[in-house]
């Protein structure tokens, strides 16, 4: 069967076309909002104005194209609700990614550093950092990302530890939300939500079902769902046609290969 020995480069070209060509067309696809996305949205929506929300950028540069639309939507929602953001990163690459993203969205929405958000930067050894912030955030982060004393900012002078933080949102491409649940959640009763890459989704269902995570949003589809709830069209929506055709191609390839294999066996 010639079909079964198809050159890999032909498959690569098909993938390139299936994902690339739909990007040239702006076809808005309606997106249904899932249960998990609603949970995260309402968790943020129910936080009183002016409360502190901690956004931990636990990601690496490799997953930025997937996570960025989702992180943007979450930051927008927090700013819309006038929540005071505490940004930080438990992966070194997340430090620059988180800072860029927060400053970019804050500039667009007219938010001010020091009163609406601060960025604490990176700490190595995430278990100690997570546990340490339960005792005192100042102990773990004496200075912010640009090495300024963040306690001098009027909006953050009263920030002590998790008791003052309404919600921690771990924006992650790996296992970091697990550590937030295990150390901040179980020891300090901190509420935690997760914004994840799609590949990590199945790993976190036990935590959402048990209530250890208040909810999770995952992947580009999750970003599109969140954008729908916020009423704007961003990177998540832009990618949905390509995402659909990419999936359709892989489903088709699997079916064709299985049919060819069956015919060969007969």
């Amino acid at each position: 069967m010639r079909l079964l020995s198809l050159d890999r480069r032909i498959i690569y070209i098909l993938v390139l076309l299936a994902v690339g060509v739909p990007l040239l067309f702006r076809v808005p696809l309606p997106v249904k909002v899932g249960v998990e996305t609603r949970k995260v949205h309402s968790a943020i929506d129910n936080i009183p104005h002016g409360s502190y929300v901690m956004l931990s950028f636990d990601i690496e540069a490799s997953s930025l194209p997937e996570v960025k639309p989702l992180a943007e939507a979450t930051v927008r929602h927090c700013f819309q609700r006038d929540l005071r953001i505490i940004g930080l990163a438990l992966f070194s690459e997340g430090a620059a990614i988180g800072y860029n993203l927060l400053v970019q969205v804050a500039d667009e929405m007219g938010k001010v550093y020091g009163s609406d958000y601060i960025y604490l930067g990176f700490r190595p050894q995430y278990v100690s950092a997570i546990l340490g912030m339960g005792e005192s955030i100042e102990d773990v982060f004496p200075l912010d990302y640009l090495n300024n004393d963040w306690r001098e900012y009027p909006g953050y002078a009263s920030l002590g530890n998790y008791d003052d933080v309404a919600l921690v949102i771990s924006i992650a491409d790996g296992s970091l939300p697990t550590y937030w649940v295990e150390y901040a959640g179980s020891r300090y009763n901190q509420k935690i939500a997760a914004c994840l890459t799609a590949a990590m989704t199945t790993s976190y269902y036990p935590y959402t079902v048990s209530g250890q995570l208040v909810g999770m949003v995952s992947g580009l589809k999750g970003a599109a769902e969140y954008e729908t709830m916020l009423g704007y069209s961003g990177g998540g929506h832009r990618g949905m046609l390509s995402q659909s055709s990419g999936h359709a191609l892989i489903i088709l390839l699997v079916i064709v290969a299985n049919v060819a294999e069956l015919r060969k066996r007969k």
């Binding site: 390139l16 994902v19 490799s62």
Partner: peptide
């Protein structure tokens, strides 16, 4: 770095075709 990981889209399609 993100392009290195984007390469996996091609490999995962090829692997699905050959092994699934």
């Amino acid at each position: 770095q993100s392009t290195v990981f984007a390469l996996l889209a091609f490999f995962v399609a090829s692997a699905a075709y050959r092994g699934f």
